[in-house]
């Protein structure tokens, strides 16, 4: 168990920069949470370059967890490893495992398609498909073989309401998803991601391409989703992390330095390095 003394125990960031693997400082509060996603000793390489070093963390059920850290620290890579989007890159190799509930994510006999259906993902840049708003939302269900119009309509409405978009688009569900504004498009992507009732919702800097008003709407939305969905989000905006997340993990050069309740981490972190980063003295 890390104690307050560790705040003074050498400069972890310098050690990480030298290539040493530093153990993650995890706050005791996390032990009380029920984990839905469990990362176990996960390493990832792009070709010869290692991008993630021995990350172990569990993501609590029904909570919003934020990954923060300077650019290039591996936040997005870690997030994309959860639903194995990195499989699309040929040079990627990994070791270690993750578990979604009781099931292994990187096990030999895992059906990646099936696995991805259990998770939703929202990307940095909104990416609605070239089809109508309705088709966009029910895409995941349709490719899964759902044909019943009544079911699809119900899911569509529920997801759009969940994404706080229903009132704006209910009269033009058959218009192109690309005809909406940027903020609406991003909420449409969130609706698409939650339509299939995912166990984990992955968000990769969901507000970085949005203006402040659209950002605040998406943040409100994330706050509303808390409880119903487990959200794992990457953000480089620390104010955002403090506003919307329950737990925050500070990453640096592919390692998780400190992981704990957001309120603790931002006001009274265990490590001096985290405090330096959060207060802007470094990074």
């Amino acid at each position: 168990m890390p104690t307050i003394e560790s705040r003074t125990a050498g400069d972890r960031l310098t050690r990480i920069a030298r290539g040493e693997v530093v153990s993650t400082t995890i706050h005791p509060e996390l032990a009380h949470e029920e984990a839905v996603l469990d990362v176990q000793g996960f390493n990832l390489w792009y070709g010869e370059t290692q991008a993630i070093f021995d990350v172990s963390m569990s993501i609590p059920q029904g909570k919003v967890t934020a990954l923060i850290g300077p650019s290039g620290c591996g936040k997005s890579t870690l997030l994309r490893s959860v639903n194995r989007m990195n499989d699309l890159i040929e040079t990627v190799s990994i070791s270690g495992d993750m578990k979604l509930g009781p099931d292994s994510i990187y096990g030999k006999s895992v059906d990646v398609i099936e696995l991805r259906r259990r998770m939703g993902m929202v990307f940095q840049k909104s990416n609605p498909f070239p089809m109508s708003i309705r088709e966009n939302v029910v895409y995941a269900l349709k490719i899964n073989g759902e044909r019943n119009r009544a079911v699809l309509d119900e899911v569509c409405e529920k997801a759009l309401r969940g994404a706080a978009l229903w009132d704006e688009v209910k009269d033009r569900l058959d218009e192109s998803g690309l005809s909406m504004s940027g903020g609406q498009q991003q909420r449409l992507c969130i609706a698409r991601a939650i339509a299939a009732e995912p166990e984990v919702l992955l968000m990769d800097e969901p507000c970085s391409a949005l203006d402040p008003i659209a950002t605040s709407r998406v943040e409100e939305l994330i706050l509303r989703l808390r409880g119903d969905y487990t959200v794992l989000m990457v953000t480089h905006n620390m104010q955002q992390a403090s506003r919307v997340s329950d737990f925050t993990a500070f990453m640096y050069l592919g390692q998780v330095v400190e992981y704990g309740p957001t309120a603790r981490l931002f006001t009274n972190p265990l490590l001096k390095e985290t405090e330096d980063y959060i207060t802007g003295r470094f990074g």
Partner: peptide, 13 residues
């Protein structure tokens, strides 16, 4: 690429 990724992330083949 983001469109393809979006589709893959929805569990599409």
């Amino acid at each position: 690429t983001s469109m393809r990724e979006g589709s893959f992330a929805c569990g599409a083949t």
